[in-house]
Structures are given as structure tokens and as C-alpha cells.
Design a protein around this nucleic acid. Sequence first.
DNA 1: TTTTTTGCAAATACTTTGCATAACG
DNA 2: CGTTATGCAAAGTATTTGCAAAAAA
Lengths: 152, 152
Amino acid sequence: MNFQLNEQKEELQKRLSRFEKQCREKGLRVTRQRREIFCTVAQSSEHPSAEKVFQAVRQKMPNVSLDTVYRTLSSLEEMDLLMRVGLSSKARFDGDLRPHCHFVCTRCGEVYDIFPQAGEPPFSLPYGAAEKGEVKQINLQLRGICKKCCSR
Amino acid sequence: MNFQLNEQKEELQKRLSRFEKQCREKGLRVTRQRREIFCTVAQSSEHPSAEKVFQAVRQKMPNVSLDTVYRTLSSLEEMDLLMRVGLSSKARFDGDLRPHCHFVCTRCGEVYDIFPQAGEPPFSLPYGAAEKGEVKQINLQLRGICKKCCSR
DNA sequence: TTTTTTGCAAATACTTTGCATAACG
DNA sequence: CGTTATGCAAAGTATTTGCAAAAAA
């Protein structure tokens, strides 16, 4: 198990290097806050909210502020170093319950439908789903930059 | 095309009946506001926000209030008559970028990971995805009631 | 008529922004 | 040293709640 811990540490190191490399490429400075926030999310398996990340980081850096956490989470998302579960700020609703996918643009927030085409294999529940609870909706979400935003 | 319009109307009628039936089953009253809000979302294909629904409904019912819209959208979700794109209120973050699914409990808001098991077919992009934009993340989202909430 | 729902107003989250100071490269 | 990032405070959105009056069953 000590072995496993070492593996985890190595893995984290690798991700930290990637983080630092991408920061430099983007012209962003590698600050203590960014590193700490990145590590916190990278090591957590509980899909923390901004507030939770803030509380965790504050253990090591009592002076960190919540708005720095928000700012950093957004830039980490933009660098594809973490992903946001669900949407950003406001909720949106869909009355069409037929199985289909959503392409969510992480830049403008627009949501596009993708309906299955003829001959396409149907959705299927992943093996481990049933043991988590009672599934009522399946929704494949693709996140990226939409055509409109790409051409700007 | 008149024919198609008739089909659409019939479809909406069917969904309205289902809506009314489920309201009665849940002991909820079928009010003008609920019916109007349901129809608005059911007929829209733009994944409207609460604010957008509010504006649309206000065309027909100038006195409707935004908080009624919020309340109604939540009860419609609970009745599985519409779905929420993404999560409810607050954003949550995931540092694990390996392909995996999320089981989202619509009652308590908890997010559970489901990792693919050995022998399970891998994720694949749906056919129409590429034409929407540049996909950076794929995330299969299952929505339902988790075990913990079921046993309460 | 009884109970639920609505609209209003106000409160409560959650997230973002402007600006002077601190920290990185 | 020049420039970017941080912390603070305050503002801006999004969503929720308590309560008296209105509407459904």
C-alpha cells in the first residue's frame, strides 16, 4: 500500500507538471494559490463545489479568498485541467424527453441538441449504473466550443 | 404542412393529458399557470432558462410571477415531465478527466462516479457531434434518485 | 368550503468585478 | 522592475421563502 501511495504521488506530480507547463504556455503565472487549488481538485473524488474547494485550500493557506478560488477554477476549466459538472451559472430546461445528446458550449453557454441518426447504436446504461440508484434520465453531454464561437 | 401542424397539436395534447394525469396522481392542482409553463417548455427547443420561460409565459399571462415559474419548473422536474440540463444551483468540479459517467441525484444533488468496467464498450461520439463544434469533454450523465435518498 | 397555489416582497445563495497591494518571472 | 494575480469589499445574478389573498377541487 505504500507502493500505491507512491504511485498516487507520482501521478499527482505528473499532473502538476502538466499544469505548470500549460500555465506557462498561456502566459499565466504559477502562483501558490493556483497550484494549491489545482491539487485540491485533482486529489478530490467528491466533485467539490467552489465553496468546498475554498474550505479545503484554506486549511493550508488561511488567507486565500473565495473569489480567487472562483477565478482559478474558471481558468483551470479553460485550460482543460478540470471539468465542470453540469452547467455554469443558470439552470436550463428541456421538455424533450426522447433520448438525445447535448452539445454545451463552454464559452457562450449555448446548448445544442444532437438527435441519434438512422443506424446509430442506441444508448445503453453503463454496467455500474443500477447500483447507484434509480435512473430516470440519460443524457450524454458533450462539452466544447461551438462553431459560432470558434469562428470569432 | 397543415398536416404536420395537426400532428404537433395532437402530440402536445397527449403530453398535456399526461401532465394532468400526473398532477392528479401527485395531488397537485392543475392550474392555468402550471399548464402554461408546461406547454412553454414542451414546445420550446431552445433549452430555455427560468427567466426565458417567465418571459414567454408572461405574453399570455401578464401577471405570472418569476417565483411561480421557478416553483413550477421544479415540480415538473420532480414529476419527470421535463429535465434540467446540467445541475441545479451550484457548480461542481471534477479533476478526473478519464472517461467516466456521473450519476446525479435529483433529490439531494449528490454526484457519483461510474467508471467503465472491464469488457464494457468504450464511449463513442454520436454521429452529429462534429458539426456542432469542437468537442473537448464527453460526459454521460444519469439522473435519478440515489440509493441513499430512495431508502428515506 | 377547505386546501393548495399564487403573487408580492424580501431574503438568501452563488458568482463576478473594480481596485490597491502583493507576488511572480 | 514590469506585469499579472491576489484579497478585500461591494455589486450583480440566480434562486428560494414567508405570508396574505386568490383559485382549484
